[in-house]
Design a protein around this nucleic acid. Sequence first.
DNA 1: AATGAATGAGTTTTCATTCAT
DNA 2: TATGAATGAAAACTCATTCAT
Lengths: 201, 201, 201, 201
Amino acid sequence: MPDRVAAVEDKRALIRGAAVRAFAKKGYHACRVSDIAEEAGVAYGLVYHYFGSKEAVLETVFRETWQLMLNAIQAVEELGEPAPEQIRKVAAIVLRTWRDDPDLVRVLVREVTRSPQLQNEIGEIVLAFQALERIIERGKAEGSFRADLDSRLAATMVYGALEEILTGWVMGQLPDSDEDVKAAERAVAATFAHGLGSVPG
Amino acid sequence: MPDRVAAVEDKRALIRGAAVRAFAKKGYHACRVSDIAEEAGVAYGLVYHYFGSKEAVLETVFRETWQLMLNAIQAVEELGEPAPEQIRKVAAIVLRTWRDDPDLVRVLVREVTRSPQLQNEIGEIVLAFQALERIIERGKAEGSFRADLDSRLAATMVYGALEEILTGWVMGQLPDSDEDVKAAERAVAATFAHGLGSVPG
Amino acid sequence: MPDRVAAVEDKRALIRGAAVRAFAKKGYHACRVSDIAEEAGVAYGLVYHYFGSKEAVLETVFRETWQLMLNAIQAVEELGEPAPEQIRKVAAIVLRTWRDDPDLVRVLVREVTRSPQLQNEIGEIVLAFQALERIIERGKAEGSFRADLDSRLAATMVYGALEEILTGWVMGQLPDSDEDVKAAERAVAATFAHGLGSVPG
Amino acid sequence: MPDRVAAVEDKRALIRGAAVRAFAKKGYHACRVSDIAEEAGVAYGLVYHYFGSKEAVLETVFRETWQLMLNAIQAVEELGEPAPEQIRKVAAIVLRTWRDDPDLVRVLVREVTRSPQLQNEIGEIVLAFQALERIIERGKAEGSFRADLDSRLAATMVYGALEEILTGWVMGQLPDSDEDVKAAERAVAATFAHGLGSVPG
DNA sequence: AATGAATGAGTTTTCATTCAT
DNA sequence: TATGAATGAAAACTCATTCAT
């Protein structure tokens, strides 16, 4: 029986993974259900068997992976380090995910952030944003960041900077070697440590 | 004769404007060509007469908007002011577009992801990016920005921050009164003036 | 499983046959995909499922018919009979197709002109032509045909004569009773046996 | 005034010539009215001004040029030479037209012969066929051709052979130098002189 | 669980033709 | 004469989804 369940999960995961690759390749809208099935090497009826609809596949991809990202960010928060260091670690998590699974990042970045439906239906994305906001808020409290800073706006800028770097990698417009990934991490950390900092130049 | 040409351009612009409103209202995907035509008050055949396809309408909107953006940014470049001030002015141009034409920004923000290649295909976007890069490069030369800064990466962060702020407004997650727009402009200017700055804290 | 495959082939053949009837009735141009589907008693989506496009249906009809023709002609070649007799048999094959499937011939004759490239794209037609050329070539070798004959040109004349007779039948300008078909076969055989012959008058 | 009429005729002829080239390039069906206009360098409204419809353009092309062919064939008849010689001269006329205006031949051969509407509407095409038939009939009377020959069928074969040679040239499958054209003429003449001849082998 | 044949609503797209200028 | 903007009927085509096997 457990084998049975495991087998089922395997096939589900197989299709989910194929969907990530297919969405990454052509974009969600341009991607037909049959493209997902073909990528997975199964008949497209099976996609419906496991996920019910094309949109549900995307939502599942998002929900199941964004949660991991969220957990990582919250773990950073709990260490209680200075805000700039926390920003650096968040940048590291987000950017290094690229190394681990570029296709996944491509989908998360491109499709999910801008989908009105997903935005509303899924609380997780808001939670990640709020975590970032809390970090900045605490930075202001501890004196690392300017007191007059609008935390929401600052979180938006940090998120945007990270997303655009990922996009640059996805689109092949930025170099993305291991060294480049680390350099990007340092650049983000430095820019916002000073850019949001309380005692600038 | 000039009247004739002008009339043609008017009608083209009429349809393009209608398309922006229609796309903003329902999204590109859910928007039928007949919706555009109806919004413009013309037969849908005319949309094909002027643009050739539904996708070409969207591409035109992107291309022509970015051309304006590009012109504005290049005008800023030519003033020869200090790099941080140039960044501030670019931010102002980009962000104030939201005030001037929210529907347009809504479409630009929501539909960038439509075609992964779209962004590369539209040379104007690339050129605008390069202008930003040049500004940062000049900032390094004049000593405003750190000499060890990766200009491409820095331009990416600035661009990302601006885009994400626009996204926040589009998605209704950031306040967007006139005052908020100005505050955002100042925040971006300050963050990157210091964040990229050569004599940080 | 073989049943499954066979069933699929049956359905495909069903639609192809319906297409031949529909094209013969109204002509390719005036024939809508839904006419084909209606003739076959299926939804028109199924035409796309099996053939991809309306034009592909026509191309398939051409290709598969010429494949049969080609096989028959090659079978004639392999008997190793004298060239004039081979010509006679080829004429019989081609002309009797009119009796066997007038709709098919009607479509082949009327729609050859549809796409100028069509004929070159369908390799089977080229191969059939080459078989005819080989027969004539062999006729020269065995002394049945004039040694100074241009085989390509001769094959062209034979092919043209056959096609024009079919056209005459299709257009209703030549009588086409069983007896007429046999007479035509004899006329072609005699004309080219003597016309290409090595010891004329 | 004569200038006025001449100018009108010039423009008409310009469009007709452009239509021939356009039809030759893409085939009648695939050819849009705007393609004709573009080829002529005029607005497509003008095509309607002079011809009324797309089909009327084709019919005009046919009528005005086929008449020339017909006159030439009838002139051959009137010389009263032996039938085989008349066949040779008809072949010469038809085939040499290729040299003079390949595009025109391409259109006549490909489009007109097989168009059911044109076939019915235009008597000239039948007249040419009948002239060929009369020549063969006379050949039987004078003893050049077999008495048991079906003249209609024989005319069909001759016509088909000529048409297919033209098609071969049009499609680039037969060499078409001046020398090849003459060789083809001789081949047709010889083949049918002997092939239809009264004292074969 | 797995397949892919079958459906058809809903689009996009074509293009001959009209007609105001 | 000449233009090409404007029309819209008519058709091709897409593809998510259902369901019998």
